[in-house]
Structure formats: C-alpha cells, structure tokens
C-alpha cells in the first residue's frame, strides 16, 4: 500500500486554489477537504482530466460530526482505473440546520442512489438531483435517523 499523498490532490490545489482547504493522508488514504460550492465542477474535472480519470465513484456518504460545527460533511470516494488509486473528497456543509450541496449525479449516475440515501438519513439536500426523495424509508417518515440526535431505539 502506498503511503504518500495522491498526485490528484496537488492537481486540485493548483486548479482550484480557493476551494481546497486541507489535504491529509491517513493509513494510505488521501483526503482532500474542499468547500462545497463548486463540488460538481471539481468532480467533473477529476473525472475528465487525463491525469486523474476518476471515472468511478465508489460511494457518497454523509457524516454527522455533532457537536462540532459545521456538523455535516459529505464524503466521496473515487477510484481511477488508470493507476488503480483512490481519492477521498470531503466537503463540510456550511448550514447546520438545512444542509445543502450540489448533486454529482450528472457526473456519475452511480451517485444517484447514494445521494438519495444520504438525503433520507441526514436530510442533506442535493441540488440538481433528478429525483431527490426518500429511498429506504417511507415518504411519510419524520426525522432523519442517522443524525446523532435521533435515538437508537424507541421514541
């Protein structure tokens, strides 16, 4: 396993200097923390740039860092078949009450259901998603179960 920063991180900070806020490496995973504003542009860049070619999005996941603020983050794990490397993108959402970020479904179709699930579980809205509605829980469900204030059992 390679224990160095993924070259795509440097590429991102060169091309989006105002967006990248942190680059970190832990156990061989490179995580690039970015501002949420231009997420779709950044993802399209990573997918189409011949040096990165992240044509495959493994997962889109929400995280609740309560009681920290900003509490919500969305992480994207990308895979490049060019050199079989992985990159994690992470965006902290500025609004703790009504978290929102642009959808990356137009970039990767595979993100569609991941984003719906993240909306379902955290109430994070994905702007520009073609069909943003609950996926695992019924439409009538109240609350977002994976938020930390949501109880584990009973109500």
């Amino acid at each position: 396993m390679t224990h160095h920063i993924h070259p795509a991180a440097e590429l991102l900070s060169a091309n989006f200097p105002d967006e990248v806020t942190q680059i970190s490496e832990f156990r061989g995973d490179t995580t690039v923390t970015i501002k949420p504003g231009r997420i779709r542009e950044i993802c399209t860049f990573l997918r189409d740039n011949p040096e990165t070619l992240f044509k495959y999005c493994s997962v889109v996941a929400g995280i609740d860092y309560y009681p920290a603020s900003p509490r919500f983050a969305v992480v994207y794990n990308l895979y490049s078949h060019k050199d079989h490397s992985r990159l994690t993108l992470k965006a902290f959402l500025t609004d703790d009450v009504a978290p929102v970020i642009d959808s990356v479904t137009p970039v990767w179709n595979g993100a569609d259901w991941h984003e719906r699930e993240t909306f379902d579980m955290y109430g994070i809205r994905f702007q520009g998603h073609p069909n943003l509605k609950r996926i695992l829980l019924p439409e009538s469900w109240a609350g977002f179960p994976l938020r930390k204030e949501y109880p584990q059992r009973g109500q």
């Binding site: 996941a61 995280i63 992480v75 794990n77 179709n109 569609d112 699930e117």
Partner: peptide, 27 residues
Amino acid sequence: GIYLVSDGTGQPVRVKIRAPSFVNLSA
C-alpha cells in the same frame, strides 16, 4: 466497501456500508 470514522473511542462514529447490490440495482 466500508467507510469508517473513529473518534478514538471503542465505538465507531460512522460506519458507511457501500453495498454492491445497492449500486448495481440503481441501473
């Protein structure tokens, strides 16, 4: 895939399960 977030305690903060069937079915 498993996306795991640890805060240094004995319990995970977040366990995201990337399940293959879920993604395959979306198509």
